[in-house]
Design a protein around this nucleic acid. Structure first.
Lengths: 249, 249
DNA sequence: GATAGCGGATAGTGTCACTATCCATCTGAA
DNA sequence: TTCAGATGGATAGTGACACTATCCGCTATC
């Protein structure tokens, strides 16, 4: 396959393919002459992986390079597959982590996962990112959302098991690395989309007469006592505007 | 409060504060002279909201401006609070949505939420983003992850109820808008961090000899087998309290 | 043997979120 | 009263990022 076909089948423009080759994201094709090279199906696949990670997952090019490097090296001893791939999924820090509030949140984050008994390294970047969010919520006085922490933990735990099972079912190490990354990133992308739609749905079902239904009131305390679902709410009005909340006074 | 104090208390550098003022993210202070203005606590809070949305949530400035505009306008008739705020949380499209594969994924995404009976607009950007992820997974042959869809749906549904309850408990409309955004964005940031730690934990518990331990298998098979959908599961089992998942060992 | 495609190299583009200066004016402590 | 330092307003510059555009000399192919 020559580059033109690669371009056509992948939908990635030629200058971009060249860019990926330059940046080492895409391995060079097999040289068949001074000016010609042949690409295989693996190049096409690699190109799709890159686009998925960049376009859907929002990863920076440098992170993609690191991840693909790891995936390419089948016997890179002494590293946890997941840790290696995962590390590169972290977003660069933009928050100020030197404040007392942040450190306090970080301590709480660690205590939280320790209480859950999770096997997580004390220095994990995810603990930092969890602390980022917790500190921000506290600074804004949104402890009410922190009160939902158990829900988030439960959901995260619920998803992780099956996901890891899928990854572990991969036949070889490169496939596992790719599976970790695509699974984590694209799985989360799906989750985020679903989550926001679920919110819109739950929002639209909220009783517009002014007060939340009794079962809703209890939600904050227990775990989501009950949100009536579409199946139970026949002919739910589509996208009802929350008239109740439009008028402030 | 003068700008110097605002800078000191918020930790945001002066040029950045000026930038936010220029961009209309931060309302001007009350003029007390030709060259002086006074800022209040609400400016400090606004600054914190901006930093949370930009730094932790990763939103572009333009989206923040739109959101804050909506939050500022207490009687903006005819708009769904959530829809309005939500819309601006969407990431700009980078994927090619003109392919047959994408359209097919988009159809499936719509069918999925329709089957759930969710009240979601047919044109929702979240359906598009869901289709992005689904199409990418399919193109990569990762149908195995799509097989976990029910888990993602269940988790999304589980979280949405309590979250909406928190939002609806806000006293006024601006607070609700802010709560929607910070709750969605920062809540998801927490979830992502927890999710990845949960994966590392589940990964570390995976029996290296090849098969998952018994309790892990239960998670992988039992839950994976079937996530009871909201519609078919009686209230009792739905939204099972997190207690179930806390004691792992 | 023309012409389209190829690889390799270099330079340019557009966006984004700041960041840096300059200037004239004003404040507040000495 | 004086004057260093802060302030508001305006304009321009920066650095990261992910491409995108050209140019060149060579080559495959019709």
């Amino acid at each position: 396959m020559k580059v033109g076909e690669l371009v056509e089948r992948s939908g990635v423009p030629l200058p971009t393919v060249k860019f990926y080759l330059r940046e080492g994201l895409l391995p060079a094709g097999e040289a068949t002459g001074r000016n010609q090279a042949a690409y295989g199906e693996e190049h096409l696949r690699r190109l799709r992986v890159i686009r998925a990670l960049v376009d859907v997952g929002g990863l920076p090019i440098t992170a993609v390079r690191e991840i693909l490097r790891a995936a390419d090296d089948p016997d890179q001893a002494g590293h946890d597959v997941r840790g290696l791939a995962h590390f590169n999924l972290a977003r660069p820090t933009r928050t100020d982590r030197s404040t007392a509030q942040w450190r306090s949140a970080r301590v709480d984050a660690l205590a939280l996962v320790r209480a859950k008994g999770w096997n997580v390294h004390e220095e994990s970047v995810w603990l930092d990112q969890l602390a980022d969010a917790m500190a921000a919520l506290r600074a804004l006085g949104h402890e009410d959302i922190l009160g939902l922490m158990d829900h988030y933990v439960a959901s995260a735990e619920q998803l992780a098991g099956p996901e890891v099972a899928v990854v572990m079912a991969q036949p070889d190490r490169p496939s596992m690395v790719e599976s970790v990354v695509t699974g984590t990133l694209l799985g989360e992308a799906m989750f985020v989309a679903l989550h926001r739609m679920a919110q819109e749905d739950a929002s639209s079902r909220f009783d517009p007469s002014g007060r939340p239904p009794a079962d809703q009131a209890g939600v904050g305390a227990g775990v989501a006592e009950r949100v009536p679902t579409a199946a139970e709410t026949p002919a739910a009005t589509k996208h009802r505007p929350p008239a109740t909340y439009q008028a402030r006074e």
